[in-house]
Amino acid sequence: MLKELVIGLETTLKNFFRPKVTIAYPEEKKPRSERFRGRHELRRYANGLEMCIGCELCQVACPANAITVQAAENDPANPRSPGERYAYEWRVDLLRCIFCGFCEEACPTGALRLTQEFELADVTRQSLVWGREKLVSDQRTDIPVPEAVYPEFRGHQPLAVIQPGAQGRGEA
């Protein structure tokens, strides 16, 4: 019996000197996956224009109805985004959000990103509805504004001229 006791005591004593497995949370944080989905962020192009063009696809894609987008026309003299429109209002209710990332997938310009930020606790419901003033990033990315997204308009022409082979497929 004594031998077993000594073995047990030895085991616990070894553990005593081992490094701790606890992560002291506020000081050190658990490493997160690169693809971790935290709160939203609306990014900017390299020249400082907002990437969001107010297309509302994220709002449509959102399964939890957390996102509300209202677009407005850009002022040509002082545009907010390179497109025709920009997100006049872009709200996400982080209490409704399920962090599925569908909005990120739906975004045609890649403006919307889910960041690594996950510490979203607060004391009121209102303060967790984040608007564009909090979500639009201050930093510029190194992504240039895409140019010549659409081929230039060269007048109305038969489809066969623009897209050879398309007619054949249509007939079959």
Binding site: T12, N15, P19, K20, T22
Partner: peptide
């Protein structure tokens, strides 16, 4: 503290 150490925890800190 020591019980924590034995269980690979930090104990009250």
């Amino acid at each position: 503290k020591f019980l924590g150490f034995f269980q690979l925890r930090h104990g009250p800190n």
